[in-house]
């Protein structure tokens, strides 16, 4: 899959292709013994380098949708195609590789590992997809990239600080660096500013804008109309279906 993606990167300017497509995506949960249908057949196409905002009320299924796009959960029906590959027909190993190399996750509550420093939190994202041999070969390069990312995100003075010692905005920036360490083609962000004050949230959006300008596709889930307006395109998730 990585090989396919590399090919896509090379051919980006010549023939822009859809990066991620969903077709008839359905998902339901059993709540209190009752089956509740969260997603009712979602069809969506995201192009490479596009910034899409998915807006919706709390409990509308935005996070569920994002988890399905990232291969963290399986749909009841329908599928997700990434670079012409149906991700749910991949074996466990290749699905893990998809999560590791093709997408990056940023969560509302950062989800940094509290035992690790800022730099280690970023590096661990790179370690997951590399064997010990490969890691020992590429360690210096990856470490430089991690430090560069943290530097770009304005955290060069905090790289050796434990994540628990960082502020909310700093933690979210570390989470972005972690999501980007493997140079994914798409960033899936779940309420990235939801836990930040307005100023910090805006600073974060500026940073995302910079990465987007570098060619990164972003799917951003948010309930906030103002935040959603930063994206190139915005869809609304309502009653389990998407509206433009």
């Amino acid at each position: 899959m990585r090989y396919v993606m590399n090919k896509m990167k090379m051919g980006q300017k010549a023939t822009p292709q859809p990066l991620l497509q969903t077709h008839g995506l359905r998902k339901s949960y059993s709540i209190g013994g009752e089956r509740v249908e969260i997603l009712r057949g979602i069809d969506l196409t995201v192009s490479k380098g596009e910034w899409l905002a998915v807006r919706g009320a709390s409990g509308s299924g935005k996070s569920t949708f994002l988890h399905l796009l990232g291969g963290l959960d399986r749909p009841d029906q329908g599928g997700v195609q990434f670079a012409e590959n149906e991700i749910f027909s991949l074996g466990n190993r290749r699905l893990n590789q998809y999560r590791c190399w093709s997408v990056g996750f940023v969560f509302q509550f950062y989800h940094l590992l509290p035992e690790l420093t800022a730099l280690e939190n970023v590096l661990i994202g790179a370690m997951v997809g590399r064997s010990i041999v490969r890691w020992s070969r590429e360690r210096n390069t990856v470490r430089r990239r991690a430090i560069d990312l943290l530097d770009k995100l304005g955290l060069s003075h905090r790289i050796h600080h434990r994540s628990t010692k960082l502020s909310g905005g700093e933690r979210q920036r570390v989470a972005i660096a972690r999501a980007l360490i493997n140079d994914p083609l798409i960033l899936l962000t779940d309420e990235p500013t939801g836990n930040l004050d307005t100023t910090t949230g805006d600073q974060l959006l500026d940073l995302l804008q910079q990465f987007h300008q570098g060619g990164l596709a972003i799917i951003m889930v948010t309930h906030d109309e103002r935040i959603a307006s930063v994206a190139q395109r915005c869809v609304v998730l309502e009653d389990g279906q998407l509206r433009n």
């Binding site: 990232g70 963290l72 466990n92 190993r93 893990n96 590789q97 998809y98 999560r99 590791c100 190399w101 996750f105 969560f107 989800h111 590992l113 661990i124 994202g125 997951v128 997809g129 972690r178």
Partner: peptide, 16 residues
């Protein structure tokens, strides 16, 4: 538990 979820989201396998 949540760290395990994060690791899985980053591509860590079950055996990992």
């Amino acid at each position: 538990t949540r760290d395990i979820g994060v690791m899985r989201a980053m591509g860590a396998s079950r055996s990992g």
